[in-house]
């Protein structure tokens, strides 16, 4: 308790801010999600009305479905593609720096810019479709953005393009952190490279994977600007996401209660995933430590 007292005191303001901003504001949001607040918060309680309305809304259902598609795709692809790119770069290739820069560059762009770039790339009159048609394939059609079933995948592609570079950089750092002796030992034992990666290196890179996972997951929950820039939620409401629902209702439509109800559902979902995971992650470690101290 009194060890490192100075550093603990120094951390107090940050702890207080975190408590006030994160916990305080979250509680505030949950509180007002049970009211009929419109543009301004009022303490007129309506029970679960806002939630009932939320779950009856087809736009919300579509939003949830979309964030699930976006989430699964970006988790699977950015992890696997990012890791593969890192492995390729780790083969002591020439111009590694150049490739690393190229792959990491999209990450320097904001989601708004990314969205606009892809909007032009996928535009049917100017983008890929036009280029390929001009090459002589007249029948070629690429109507992802105007097709309500595929619009969300346009967002996935743009998100991957933007985010995979960072995953690659993190993985590469992880790979470089693996002791050279392990590779030597594996080679002596005659284990093929792919098995070494799969069964030795990846388990050793667990902390890197956890960090990456947290970063990607946070990006999934808050995806908003990319959608606004790329599709505006369209065609129709087919590429809406929860964060946009929250923003539209809180600010655009003057329905604070409804927006807060949606954000509370988002928070709850995240907690449902996060708590068991945190429990596993940190509970496990404590148990492991015990026998060592005895």
């Amino acid at each position: 308790m009194f060890r490192n007292l100075h550093s603990k005191i120094a951390a107090l303001p940050m702890i207080a801010t975190a408590l006030f901003i994160f916990v305080g504001c979250s509680l505030w949001s949950v509180f007002y999600s049970f009211t009929s607040s419109r543009s301004l918060p009022v303490e007129k309680f309506v029970g679960f009305d806002q939630y009932i309305r939320l779950f009856k809304s087809s736009r919300w259902a579509i939003s949830i479905e979309n964030v699930a598609i976006y989430g699964v795709c970006s988790l699977v692809f950015s992890l696997s593609v990012g890791f593969l790119l890192a492995v390729f770069l780790d083969q002591k290739i020439r111009f590694e720096n150049t490739f690393r820069t190229i792959f990491l560059y999209p990450f320097a762009l904001s989601f708004i810019v990314t969205g606009l770039v892809w909007q032009w790339i996928l535009n049917q009159n100017f983008g890929i479709q036009k280029v390929i048609q001009d090459l002589g394939f007249e029948g070629f059609e690429l109507n992802i953005l105007s097709n309500r079933d595929y619009a969300i995948y346009a967002i996935v592609v743009a998100g991957l393009w933007q985010g995979t570079g960072l995953v690659m950089a993190l993985m590469l750092a992880g790979l470089r952190g693996i002791d050279e002796d392990i590779w030597k030992a594996a080679r002596v034992d005659g284990i093929p490279a792919w098995r070494t990666y799969l069964f030795i290196v990846i388990p050793m890179m667990r902390p890197v994977f956890v960090t990456t996972l947290v970063l990607i997951a946070a990006g999934i929950v808050k995806v908003y600007d990319l959608v606004v820039a790329l599709t505006g939620g369209g065609p129709g409401v087919s590429s809406e996401v929860p964060a946009k629902y929250v923003y539209d209702y809180m600010f655009g439509r003057g329905s604070l209660g409804q927006g807060l109800a949606a954000s509370t559902v988002m928070l709850t979902t995240v907690l449902i995933i996060l708590i068991p995971w945190g429990y596993m992650e940190f509970g496990e470690r404590r148990e492991k430590k015990k026998p060592a101290s005895e």
């Binding site: 409401v237 087919s238 209702y249």
Partner: peptide
């Protein structure tokens, strides 16, 4: 209507329009 209701009606019409 207030902007909340107008927003919902717009959502409906644009969803109908595209789907």
């Amino acid at each position: 209507f207030n902007s909340d209701t107008i927003g919902q009606l717009e959502d409906l019409s644009t969803e109908f329009w595209s789907d």
